[in-house]
Nucleic acid binder design. Structure first.
Lengths: 351, 351
DNA sequence: CTGAAAGCGCTTACAG
DNA sequence: CTGAAAGCGCTTACAG
């Protein structure tokens, strides 16, 4: 074995750009340019640099690169919470896009903690020092925060936001809610309730207003209205949906049809129904938005939205911006699709 | 307004350590020491430095700090997948611990992609350049990978691994499976099947062997055995559980009781039962491990494990190591608890 | 197309 | 307890 051990096994430290320069008989500067694919490098030099680099197993020090060049090679993925199905899908899809572009994904969950939110948005310079860009996933922003972000050196992209001065991807929430409600109307229902998201919960998905609007609008087209008592605002969770449906059953009266703003709320609603000896669609038609994997298990009728696609698309747009793409901010809306399963049907009073 | 605008609004660049040194009339070196809470700084100097730093809104450049000091202030959270309930819980819990310690969390999902796995574990030096430590969440490692990690400059901690040379936290999977199976046995069942995790899926939770062992062991204590046909290996997912239960019903015969290695597999199993006009506990007793939030909706009897606690604990241990704690690696097992709901009951043949 | 020089903002020994 | 100096490993103008 003597003498055969490659030096890389005994070297405590990694090869530096200096080693590559030495081995390729070129200057550090040329090596740097070649390695980053910059122009003004002869084919010969390019080849020698690449050979030397791979021979030495050279990898640039990101710390040095970011100090000298100001780029960090990382992006922040910011979510209101990382624990829900929706955000878990979105986060992984985004992370995959970034990883394939060689970017590290720094995950930041706001967790509904005001101090965390303040720590992040209150010192964007500190953030900008650690990442080149920010991908906002379902984070609802105040005007001040939008301003601050736009003014910062950070590139920004978002999912589920509109009217922002950066690239954003989402679905048309008004239309999705309209489609869900229209399905209920088409079935012949005339009496409705909506399990809407709790809007006070700043830092959560900013879609509740649009979904409520789509719902109201669809009803209006049929000259119908919701009684304010039938608009129940609770967090978008199993627990929230459970409480909302319980409130409906116990106090406000169960309507013919219920539109839940998200699948998880519908799951909670289903649980509440069952505990009262009721079920969908027998006693009430129930529809939601998302298409969570459990929806197929429970037979929930829902409007499917492409969560991973939205996040991946937004991540792509951010990656391109980081690579220098310029131009006006884009706002993409991905299509949704109604999936009819077993929690909706015609009301009993119909023939 | 003239003259009132604080300079921080017009300054393009942030204050550096030099500015703090100048303002406090101390050397850069002393400032650096004071800011990091190192010894050998007089009270007076400490105070002057802190005043100057806060007056200037100074924040150290992490890039410079990592280049000069070798520490990155980041940790990697590595998971087999980020999309499942289990990992979403674990990731957020860990991220919270790290964030509260001022550490950035770089999320790395292996996604079952061999190239990603190779990119990460095949070049630990590159990883070590970007993070100080690694938290492995449910990542099953080969011996070679354990060796490489242990030999790297990275601090390591894990959740759901045992026999590793670093701090690890988990549950006793053998015991959890034993408890689940014993519950079935106590009910009077004598004929079993197990929906086990697919072990070929390297890079996934490495608990399938232990859970199968706990199952087999509990049966053995009652002088029972499982027929090999009744050990069905599928991925730990709704889909996997669905396929496994379908296979049981269609081809291998439905036993009296089924133990699913995780709740999500049980959900899929429940769906398969329903599609065949069957249900639990009427036609089969079904139990699992996890206590997923949907389990309460579906009434699934299960052995609850504290997912977030395990991850947070492991993250704490890693944080302490990064802060210099030494000592032998710890291996903690958190307790589990059987939650009896509605998918298990005595077999029909009993009185 | 290529290179010498300065500098990014810290930390680390080493003197004092 | 404090400071001057060197250096971490790159990138960025600026000459050639």
């Amino acid at each position: 074995m003597k003498g055969l051990r490659p030096c890389s096994l005994t070297d405590r430290s990694r090869a530096t750009i200096r080693d590559v320069a030495l081995l390729s008989s070129l200057s550090i500067c040329t090596v740097s340019r070649a390695l980053r694919g910059l122009p003004n490098v002869s084919e010969d030099a390019q080849r020698r640099v690449e050979d030397a680099a791979s021979k030495l197993g050279y990898r640039a020090s990101s710390a040095a690169a970011r100090l000298a060049g100001g780029r960090t090679g990382s992006v922040a993925i910011i979510v209101p919470r990382a624990t829900t199905w929706f955000f878990a899908q979105a986060v992984e899809a985004a992370e995959e896009v970034f990883a394939d572009s060689g970017l590290d994904s720094v995950l930041i969950s706001l967790r509904g903690r005001a101090d965390v939110r303040e720590r992040i948005f209150g010192d964007l310079d500190a953030l900008a020092q650690r990442v080149d860009g920010v991908l906002l996933l379902g984070v609802d922003l105040g005007d001040d925060e939008v301003q601050a972000l736009a003014a910062s050196p950070l590139e920004v992209a978002s999912m589920g936001l509109s009217g922002v001065p950066w690239d954003t991807v989402g679905i048309d929430d008004v239309q999705a809610a309209h489609a869900a409600t229209s399905h209920l109307l088409g079935l012949g229902h005339g009496e409705f309730a909506i399990l809407a998201a709790d809007e006070d919960d700043r830092g959560t998905v900013g879609t509740s207003g649009d979904r409520l609007a789509g719902f109201t609008q669809a009803l209006a087209e049929h000259h119908l209205e919701v009684h304010p008592d039938r608009i129940i605002k609770e967090p978008s969770s199993i627990e929230g949906g459970y409480r909302a449906m319980t409130e409906l059953i116990d106090n406000r009266g169960l309507p013919e049809a219920v539109f839940a703003a998200c699948d998880e709320a519908a799951f909670g609603a289903l649980k509440a129904l069952r505990e009262h000896g009721l079920s969908a669609p027998k006693d009430v038609s129930l529809i939601a938005i998302d298409d969570h994997p459990m929806s197929t298990v429970l037979g929930l009728t829902t409007v499917a939205q492409p969560v991973a696609d939205q996040a991946a698309f937004a991540a792509d747009l951010l990656t391109e911006r980081l690579q220098g793409r310029s131009g006006a901010p884009q706002d993409h809306r991905l299509p949704v699709a109604l999936i009819e399963r077993k929690t909706t049907r015609r009301p009993r009073r119909q023939p």
